[in-house]
Write a protein that binds this DNA or RNA. Sequence first.
DNA 1: GTCTATATTACGATAGAC
DNA 2: GTCTATCGTAATATAGAC
Lengths: 196, 196
Amino acid sequence: MTTAKRDTYTPETLLSVAVQVFNDRGYDGTSMEHLSKAAGISKSSIYHHVAGKEELLRRAVSRALDGLFGILDEEHARGGHAAERLEYVVRRMVEVLIGDLPYVTLLLRVRGNTDTERWALERRRDFDHQVAELLRAAAADGDVRRDVEGRLATRLVFGMINSIVEWYRPDGRGMSEREVADAVVQLVFGGLRKDA
Amino acid sequence: MTTAKRDTYTPETLLSVAVQVFNDRGYDGTSMEHLSKAAGISKSSIYHHVAGKEELLRRAVSRALDGLFGILDEEHARGGHAAERLEYVVRRMVEVLIGDLPYVTLLLRVRGNTDTERWALERRRDFDHQVAELLRAAAADGDVRRDVEGRLATRLVFGMINSIVEWYRPDGRGMSEREVADAVVQLVFGGLRKDA
DNA sequence: GTCTATATTACGATAGAC
DNA sequence: GTCTATCGTAATATAGAC
């Protein structure tokens, strides 16, 4: 056994506090003073755990990116028909979004004012392109409509999925991850219109 | 006739510069120094035209909100079957988003750190609720699927529409407003799946 | 209307005691 | 690991000349 859980901060526990504040106020709208108040320790104590504000951002977006890229390595995302792989990836994106909600939220709001932010934006683009490639393959198979151009469709679908971070809150009796994922898959593939 | 167009700033022309910078760097990430560099005048000259940074924000989001609420007053949004009114509103939202792109972009990124931001968030919620009501009516008419809960569907559809500000750029030979609106209507109502 | 100069406050980060 | 005190910089905004 390790020693009993301590009352003090680690970079990891401090991160979870910081990410909440970043998401509430925006990264640029958050000062070290805000963070210290939220964490209940002084500003200088924060610097004992992390090098500064930007390191907290880097750790947070790294975690989000690892979650997303992890999807593409999963078995169901790598084998089978493109359309099925696409549906699997869409569903898993919703699950990762919700599972790592605060981290992915922060990632999706990054602007590009610092090196860390520009790096995050670049990796996000990589991920987007890989999913766009899946959609292109599904269209080539004739499994998805071709009257909407591929890049455009990808962007709109990503927009729908990513927007979940703007309202989903894991409030006890709220919606489950599964319910949201089902709804997204229904709407993305079937649309609002009633089935014949 | 009025006097010839002058070379100097008005609150309106200054606003168009400021909004661009706000969207590029984020509102909180933009200093008066950034604005003065972008406008080509000194910081203090900016204060001759507007009371401060927050006034620029207020003017910008007001314009965006006026555009959106204007939709709900249009004839086609007020008469006819709910499903048709809903489709009309969805299409017009895309058009207003693109027509007032920088202003709506800024509105959609507001966090709530100042009174102005909290006021903007409140009005946005009002608008969202009115569109959600339309969707509810269309569902009651049996014109849209009922296996996806109304609030959830509204949020996802808004997410898709609003995400347009993250990538649409009116670059000369890019997509037209009409093409984007068509694609959104196709996906929102019909989904990705190929029609039978 | 625009400028330079400056007041004042807030910020990120460090020094050094305990 | 946490604190108080503080440094140096950058922020919003104002004063007053031209």
